[in-house]
């Protein structure tokens, strides 16, 4: 891998920025060059939120991801907005609990994960984001428990250390989902 560009998008409150931050930290721990750029409009819970994450072997130029290699769409407006921006041959991860339609393109790989439903059934309704991230890492061939733990340790504050296992379990759910 030389450079991977990710775009995370969904409702405010779905943990879009957190998921992006996790991925950026994982890159940092693995000695990659990384950047994380949130949208920062007048947003609030229920509004739209997105963030650009770049993980690269080389210094990151523009931190703005306009054409992602991987799109993580956690609601329908996000898929509508960014579906056509994904590079040909790219990958789309869609939360199929909240997105009822199918992706219209045939030049990208699509993973439909009912993340919101899985999160709810797991008793962790706020962790749909981490379920999808689990799948992202699995697809990247990058789901290695120690590395994942290390990165989680960076984004979960010491005060909430008990959440680490919970997040890890959610990610495992996503990784195992077929």
């Amino acid at each position: 891998m030389s450079t991977k560009q990710f775009l995370f998008s969904g409702f405010g409150g779905q943990g879009i920025l957190f998921a992006g931050k996790f991925l950026a930290y994982k890159g940092l721990i693995e000695d990659k060059q990384v950047s994380w750029l949130p949208s920062y409009g007048p947003e609030m819970r229920g509004g739209t939120a997105s963030c650009s994450v770049i993980v690269s072997d080389e210094p990151v130029g523009s931190p703005i991801v306009s054409n992602p290699d991987m799109l993580i769409a956690m609601n329908l407006p996000s898929l509508d907005k960014y579906e056509n921006a994904v590079v040909p041959g790219g990958v789309i991860f869609a939360d199929s609990t909240l997105i009822e339609r199918k992706v219209n393109r045939d030049d990208v790989t699509v993973y439909y994960i009912p993340a919101t439903r899985l999160a709810s059934e797991n008793g962790t309704p706020t962790l749909a984001n981490m379920i999808i991230i689990g799948k992202v890492l699995k697809v990247l061939g990058d789901f290695e428990e120690n590395a994942v733990r290390a990165a989680l340790g960076k984004v979960i504050s010491a005060k909430h250390a008990d959440m680490l296992e919970v997040n890890l379990k959610a990610m495992q759910l996503g990784a195992d989902y077929e």
Binding site: K21, L28, V34, P38, Y40
Partner: peptide
Amino acid sequence: DGTMGQMMEP
């Protein structure tokens, strides 16, 4: 600018 202020990097 807003990008430099809001973005995270190592």
